[in-house]
Design a protein around this nucleic acid. Sequence first.
DNA 1: TTTTTAATTGTCAAACTTACACTTATATTT
DNA 2: AAATATAAGTGTAAGTTTGACAATTAAAAA
Lengths: 231, 231
Amino acid sequence: MPQPSKYIKPLIAVDCLIFGFDNQTLKVLLIKRKLQPYQNEWSLMGGYLEGEESADEAASRVLKELTGREGIFMEQIKTFSKFDRDPTERTISVVYSSLIDVTKFETQLNHSYEAHWFKLSEVPKLIFDHTEMISSGRDYLKKKAALQPILFELLADKFTIPQLQQLYEEVFETQLDKRNFSRKLLGSTLLKKLDEKDKSGSKKGAFYYQLDQQINHYNFNVLLNLAYSEL
Amino acid sequence: MPQPSKYIKPLIAVDCLIFGFDNQTLKVLLIKRKLQPYQNEWSLMGGYLEGEESADEAASRVLKELTGREGIFMEQIKTFSKFDRDPTERTISVVYSSLIDVTKFETQLNHSYEAHWFKLSEVPKLIFDHTEMISSGRDYLKKKAALQPILFELLADKFTIPQLQQLYEEVFETQLDKRNFSRKLLGSTLLKKLDEKDKSGSKKGAFYYQLDQQINHYNFNVLLNLAYSEL
DNA sequence: TTTTTAATTGTCAAACTTACACTTATATTT
DNA sequence: AAATATAAGTGTAAGTTTGACAATTAAAAA
C-alpha cells in the first residue's frame, strides 16, 4: 500500500476535443472558461471526475452538458500530466475526442458556455496545454481515419460524394482527384445511393448517399490508399 | 477552483506493457507483484507518480528500474480509470507500451522483480485490469505498426529477412508469402544489406540487414499493404 | 434559348499485388 | 568425398489498382 506522503493525488480532469464539419471546413468547438483563473478565456469543454465516475463516464457527462446529447462518438486520445500544466492545482487531464455533425447540434448547444466553432487554422490562444491537445487530437484523427471509416460520424445521415471528398481533403490536408475519389468510394460497397438530390451546392444537384448497413464487409484498403500519403 | 469535497483525488499509477520478440514469438514481460494485496501474483511492471513527475517521466523511471536502461522506445497507450479497478484504493493508471529487443535485456533485468517473458497466448491470470491492458496494447501495436516502421524496435541492430517476416507474422497474426515479403521490404529503401550472415537459423545462413539511416524517405505504402488485411 | 455552375463519368499506361516452385548455399550425414 | 537435408533466396505472369487526364450532363439563372 502506497504511503500518502510520497505519492501524489491530483485532481483528474477530462477535456473534450469536439470536431465538427459544416460541409466546408473541419472545426473544433471551444468554450469560454467559467472558472477562475483564466475566466472567459477560450478552452476545450472540460470537467472534473466526480464520485465513482470513470473518465469515460465523466467525459460523456461533460459532453452531454454542452451538447444536450448522449451516445455521441467519443474516444480517449491521450492523458496530459505535466506538473505545472495547470498552475492553480496539480491536475491530470484525460482528453477525449468526439466527432459530431455540426448542423445537427447548432441549435441544441448549451448557450451558457458561449461555445463557438473555430476553423483549425483559426483557433485562438487557449488556456493551459489545450493547444497541444488539439494537435494531438488532429494527429489521432488522421491516423484513425486512415484505418477506419470513422469520418462519416462528422456527416449527416445523408451526404453527397462532393461533401465526403471535401471532408477527406480537410482531414488529410490534401487535394484529391474527384474522378479517382468517387471511383474508390463507390467501388467500396460502403455507400448506398439515394434517389434524392442535394440542391444546395450546385444547380445540377448532387445525389445523396448513405452508409450501407453492412460496414463489416467493408474493404479497408479503400481508405488506406486515400490516406497513407498524408500521414 | 474545484471544491475538494465533490471532486476525487486518486492515486496515479503507470503500468508498462513491455513487448519483446525472441526471433520466434511475440512476448510480454510480466513481474510478480511485490505489494500487498495480491502479492506474488503476475502483473505488468508499474509504479505510482511521485513528486513533480509527469506520467511519461514516471513510466521511464519504472521501466529503468526493471530493465536498467534509459531511452527505450515507449508510448502512452491508454488510461484506465474504472472506479473499482483497484479494490484497495481508488487508482487511475496510465498505461505505456515499450518495444525491446529481448536478447539485449535478458541479462540486465532487475532480478528482484522475478520478471518473466510470456507468449501472448500463454499470459497467466493477471491482477486488476492488466489483462485488458495487454489486449489494448496489442491492438495499438497492430495499428501503429500498420502506419509506421516501429517493429524494428523489437529487433537487434542486425536482423535477417526471415526474422523480420516472422515478426510481422506474429504481430499481425497472419502468414505471409516470403517471396512477396522480401520483394516489398527490399524495394522500400528501408534496409541496408550487410556482408555478414546469421548461421543460427539454417545451414545456408541468412544475410543480416540493418535499418537504413534515412528512414524519412521511406515509403509507408509498404507497411500499409502488409498490414491492412489484418486490422 | 442561352449561359453558368458544379456533378458525373471513362480511358489508358504504369505500378502494384497475388499466386506459385525451383535453385542455392551450407552443414550434416553417410 | 559424396550424398542429403534444410532453410534462404529468387522470377514471372495474370489480374488488379492507381494516377493522370477532360468531356458531358443536369438544372437553375439570365
